[in-house]
Amino acid sequence: MSLLLAIVIIGVLASCFGALIGFASVKFKVEGDPLAEQIDALLPQTQCGQCGYPGCKPYADAVANGEAINKCAPGGDDTIKKIADLMGVEAQALDESHQTDNTPKVAFIIEEDCIGCTKCIQACPVDAIIGTTKQMHTIISDECTGCDLCVAPCPVDCIIMMPIAKNTRNWQWDLNSIPVEQIS
């Protein structure tokens, strides 16, 4: 008798909790992949496509599904380290095939050479180029992510990538250049 009672009680409890879990999985379902979102937040959002994916979000999705974490050239080692921390995996060196010079740059159009073909405008992933057919184009340098994608399509090679100039606003203190002052 007591055996039966135990089975019944455990059975009822199991079905109750099962129903509860079932309800929760429907009610509190998470849309999208939260891990991909978190990875996306760590990526530099240059949308350069150097990783082989058409933008940072697709690469984040791929990393969440097991793609190598060391393909983001603009992010460099810092980004790899952050992703490694997030995913709980070992940080790796930047993939050699993606190794590039990642000093921050912005595109610049040599305006007298521009023929107004709009090819760069179509290539820009963040709409940072202004211009229209047969009119000179120019770059909104504040919006440019320095992704390089506009350089290749230009038929007259009038787009160059320029490193961002140092000024007092983005200057980083360099300890070696500052003498230490101590008064006696």
Binding site: D40, P44, Q45, Q47, C56, K57, P125, V126, E143, W173
Partner: peptide, 25 residues
Amino acid sequence: YRVAKAEIRQQTLLDIKAEKAKQRF
């Protein structure tokens, strides 16, 4: 501290820029 402050400020600027780029993309 000055170096670290400059780094953090720079990082904040980059984060803002990345967020903007993401939105534009």
